[in-house]
């Protein structure tokens, strides 16, 4: 438990020392979302319809953008090896890194998303559901992405490769997440989608750190 907290604190401390990188990922999210109205046209009805999907897709991409560096920096300077040799389980290490990634990169997405939602004509309850769906969904993105980051550690073109590996695995998150918001818009309600998203979160929380730890071991050998 203490180890988990230390890993998380460490990554947050490092992120505060490198604010430039951190801002880049958040700005990327804003920028991608803002491109869509320019490409599609300003019709409010159309924008309201595509808004949830666009914000969710941009969240996937922004997560993967920051994800490729989750282990790469620590690998380059040798701190990853030292952490792997610590007396604690590597599964806890992978879990800690994923949680830290979510705190650093996932939570800002939740905060920015409603502002972008307003640009797409979403309002009131829909915005809340958007935030809620992102709050349940983005931890899954961090957990699954961590597997990709561990598998592509130290490879040429790892950043593009991780997108190729992980995006297909994000499909259920995208469907349930965007579905929750669209369901609210359509008046069907979001409970079913959100519960499925929650179930997927529990499953990822149980399995993904274990897989990430195995992947790290494979990659470092």
């Amino acid at each position: 438990m203490k180890f988990l907290a230390t890993v998380i604190q460490r990554d947050i401390l490092l992120a505060t020392r490198r604010r430039g990188d951190w801002l880049t990922a958040q700005f990327f999210f804003v920028l991608v979302v803002s491109m869509f109205p320019l490409g599609i046209g300003p019709d409010p009805a159309v924008l309201r319809m595509i808004g949830p999907g666009v914000i969710w897709v941009a969240a996937l991409l922004a997560t993967l953008l920051s994800m490729s560096r989750l282990y790469a920096d620590d690998h380059r300077d040798g701190t990853l090896e030292q952490m792997m040799l610590s007396p604690y389980s590597n599964i806890v290490l992978a879990l800690g890194k994923s949680i830290a990634h979510w705190i650093i990169n996932g939570i800002p997405l939740l905060v920015i998303a409603p502002l972008l939602g307003i640009q797409f004509g979403l309002a009131g309850k829909v915005l809340w559901i958007l935030m809620l769906s992102l709050a349940i969904g983005t931890p899954i993105l961090s957990l699954l992405g961590s597997i990709g980051a561990a598998l592509t550690l130290g490879l040429r073109g790892g950043g593009v490769l991780i997108t190729l590996l992980i995006l297909p695995l994000y499909v259920p998150v995208l469907i349930f997440g965007a579905g929750a918001v669209e369901g609210t818009l359509a008046g069907i309600g979001a409970e079913a989608n959100l519960s499925l998203l929650g179930a997927f979160l529990v499953l990822s929380l149980l399995l993904a750190p274990w897989v990430s730890a195995t992947a790290l071991k494979i990659s470092l050998e």
Partner: peptide, 9 residues
């Protein structure tokens, strides 16, 4: 899971 989610969608 993907198959289920796509059907759902």
């Amino acid at each position: 899971i993907i198959y289920f989610s796509v059907k759902w969608w």
